[in-house]
Amino acid sequence: MTRQHGVGELRLEPAPHDGSGRSAGPGRRPWPAGLLAVYPAGWRARYGGELELLISDLHDGGRNPVPMALDLLRGAAIAWLSIRRGSAMPERTRNALITVLWSWVGFAVTAAWFGHDLGIYPSRSAARQIALAHPAVPDAVNVLVAVGVVGLAVTAVAAVAFAFEAARYARKHQHNSTFGLMAVPPVVAVAWIAGLQVITNGSGTGGSVSTGRLTLELLWFLLGLAGIAGSTQAIAAIVARTEFSPTTWRIGAAAAAAISAAMLVGTGATIVWGLAIRSTQAHPGSAAGWLVVTAILSVTTARAVIALIGSRRHTATPDPAVA
C-alpha cells in the first residue's frame, strides 16, 4: 500500500469525468442513479448530488451497475429506517410543513372565493337579526378576513427565512434550479395580475363580446388557480430539496402551528355562524354553499392539524439508537 499524501493534505482522486455532474463518456446519467428517488427527501437534499456524481464516476470507472443498484436500495432502506428511529433528518417536520402549506393554500383560496359569498349573504336585515339573536357569534366573513391577514403575515415571515436559507444552500451546492423554482411564485403573480388588468380594461359591448369576455375571465380564473397550485408546488419542491438549519425549521414549525390555529378558528367560526343563521331564520334557503365551504375548510384544517400533531409526536419520541 502506498501513501501519496500526508495528513491534512487534500487528496482528491481524479474522477473519471469532469465536474459537470454528467458523464463525459456516454453523456448520460447511469440508470442506478434513478434509484436516488427512493431515498428520503431530506437525505437526498443533503447527499443526493454527491451520491449521483459518485454513481456516475463508479459507472464510468467500470463498476457493474446491478450490484450498485442493489447497494443503493439497501442504503435507501437504512436511510428510511434511521428516520423512523428519529435520526437528525427532520423528515416528518419537512413533510408536515409541506402538508400544512398545501392545506393553507387550499383553505385560503376557498375562504377568499366562497368567503365573498358569505360576506354578501345573508342580507343586512337578516344579519342584524342574527346579531341580535346570537350576539356572541361573530360574522364568519370577518373572522375569515382576520384569519387571512394573520395567515398571510405569518407565511410572509416564514417565507423570508426559508427563502434566504434556500438561496444560500442552492448557491453553496450549485442547485441553480432552486433559483428557478424561487422565481415561479412572483413571476406567476405578476403575469396573472398584468393579464387580469388587460382583461378588465378591455372594452366589451354587445352580447357576443360579453360572452367572449366572460369566457376569458373564467379561463383566467382557472389559470390563476393553476398558477397558485404551480407556485405552491415550486415552494414545496424547494422545502423538499433544501437542508435547513434547526432555527429555520423552528420558524417553519411555529408558523405552521400559528396558521393551523388560525385555520381552526376560521373553520369553527364558519360552522358556528352557519348554525346560527339556520337557527335564527325561518327560511334560511339552501345550505349547499355553506356546507361546501365548511367541508373544504374542515378537511384542509384537519389535514394541517393532523400533520402538525404527527410531526410533534415524532419529535417528542426519544431516539432509541441514542438513548
Binding site: V7, L12, E13, L54, D57
Partner: peptide, 12 residues
C-alpha cells in the same frame, strides 16, 4: 486518516 477525500477518492 491520511487526508480529506471525496466519495470517489474514498471508494478507490
Amino acid at each position: 486518516a491520511d487526508g480529506p477525500k471525496h466519495g470517489y477518492a474514498l471508494a478507490k
